[in-house]
């Protein structure tokens, strides 16, 4: 089955990004496809490569980058939400790309299920 995922909250502040990541990991382990993860609202903050958590904490941004690379997951950051919050191509982490809201709608159209993680 093809899944689309929406992440509405930033890393560390809220559990949404962790829950979404663990869901995606479990889904690919079961043989499903994560067709796209769309980052919206403060969720765009998951995409900055300037993130530096303490060493004993999980690195949420790198974790997304790795999962995307291993399973060819399309990580899309909403351009309007990103520009509002200072996320640009210059500080974008590996595996993420910035694009329009149409990519969220397309995920709704092209996948079998959409799951939203937020506040």
């Amino acid at each position: 089955m093809k899944f689309g995922i929406v992440v509405n909250e930033g890393p560390y502040q809220h559990q949404a990004s962790d829950s979404a990541y663990l869901f995606c990991k479990a889904a690919v382990e079961k043989g499903h496809e994560i067709w796209r993860v769309f980052f919206y609202h403060d969720g765009v903050n998951n995409a900055t490569r300037l993130t530096e958590p303490p060493q004993d904490d999980r690195h949420i941004v790198i974790r997304w980058s790795k999962l995307a690379e291993e399973h060819k997951i399309d990580l899309v950051v909403c351009v309007a939400a990103a520009l509002r919050r200072g996320i640009q191509d210059e500080n974008l982490a590996h595996g993420f790309r910035i694009s329009g809201l149409g990519q969220l709608v397309e995920a709704g159209i092209q996948t079998d299920r959409v799951v939203v993680f937020g506040d």
Binding site: L22, K30, V116, D119
Partner: peptide, 20 residues
């Protein structure tokens, strides 16, 4: 359920809604 069970629930239902 664990996260795998979460995935199964989403797959088994026609649609899902997060009550944000």
């Amino acid at each position: 359920v664990d996260y795998g069970g979460f995935v199964d629930l989403v797959a088994a239902n026609k649609n899902c809604q997060s009550w944000l």
